[in-house]
């Protein structure tokens, strides 16, 4: 028996929005530790890794580890039927072929449930090595989304350069060039508005705009985003999910030809 209840059901809706454009289908792995998902986009350029710890759920029961393969377009349809203020409960049997979603309104006067057929996915799991990154930048997530959107107008890829002074996003295209520099903030009233840079050595890497823009669909999850960069390894873009989880996107760099 698997049962997970999240009072703040809007978190699950936001998680769905954060992955549905990138992935067509994905396996949700459930264990006593919580819910995890790892999947590559269709072109195998990026990888999504989602972790929601059991401690973040109001109720969490998972008697046996199980994997639930879901079509994300179908899941999206179901989660769109939940209001932002609804509590969401997921339920499945031990060897399930369906999963049930129950949405309860705040006053409990409206209860709806939907069941969805699961699919068998033969997804390969990738081992993500522990990496000490040369630069780790934390910045407001809305700012990152705006920069990616603004610069995408000018070219297909963005170069991210990081020094101890700050981070620079650059684009070059047919009509010209664009640069956005963010300095490390000295002191800000709100932690959510800070830009911080932890740098071992400077880095400059180039990434496809298209994927960066997909990742920014996670912006509603968290006010801050963390970018981890090292030469010649994938970029990690991380958004926290409340206090109990995260969504990490790994993006392979573009290489010089």
């Amino acid at each position: 028996m698997f049962e997970a209840r999240l009072t703040q059901g809007s978190l699950l809706k936001k998680v769905m929005e954060a992955i549905r454009e990138l992935l067509n289908e994905a396996s949700f792995d459930c264990s006593e530790n919580g819910i995890q998902l790892q999947a590559m986009d269709n072109s195998h350029v990026s990888l999504v890794s989602l972790n929601m710890g059991s401690e973040g759920f109001d109720k969490f029961r998972c008697d046996r580890n199980l994997t639930m393969g879901m079509n994300l377009a179908s899941l999206s349809k179901i989660l769109k039927c939940a209001s932002n203020s609804d509590a969401i409960t997921l339920k499945a049997q031990d060897d399930p072929d369906t999963v049930t979603f129950t949405f309860e309104s705040e006053n409990n006067e409206r209860v709806s449930d939907y069941s969805m057929k699961l699919i068998n996915l033969d997804q390969e799991h990738l081992g993500i090595p522990d990496t000490e990154y040369s630069c780790v930048v934390k910045m407001p997530s809305a700012d990152f989304a705006r920069i990616c959107k603004d610069l995408s107008q000018f070219g297909d890829c963005i170069t991210i350069s990081c020094t101890k002074e700050g981070i620079k996003f650059s684009v070059a295209g047919d009509i010209g060039t664009g640069n956005v520099k963010l300095a490390q903030t000295a002191n800000v009233d709100k932690e959510s508005e800070a830009v911080t840079v932890e740098m071992q050595e400077p880095v400059s890497l180039t990434f496809a705009c298209r994927y960066l823009n997909h990742f920014t669909k996670a912006t509603p999850l968290s006010e801050q985003v963390q970018l981890s960069l090292s030469a010649d390894v994938p970029l990690v873009v991380e958004y926290k999910i409340g206090e109990f989880g995260h969504i990490r996107y790994y993006l392979a760099p573009k290489i010089d030809e």
């Binding site: 590559m40 072109s43 195998h44 350029v45 990026s46 990888l47 390969e124 799991h125 990738l126 081992g127 993500i128 090595p129 297909d156 496809a208 298209r210 390894v233 994938p234 790994y250 993006l251 392979a252 760099p253 573009k254 290489i255 010089d256 030809e257």
Partner: peptide
């Protein structure tokens, strides 16, 4: 996409 590397180049199958 021109010059785009695959994520599989960096992460091995577990």
């Amino acid at each position: 996409i021109k010059g785009q590397s695959s994520i599989l180049k960096f992460f091995a199958t577990a």
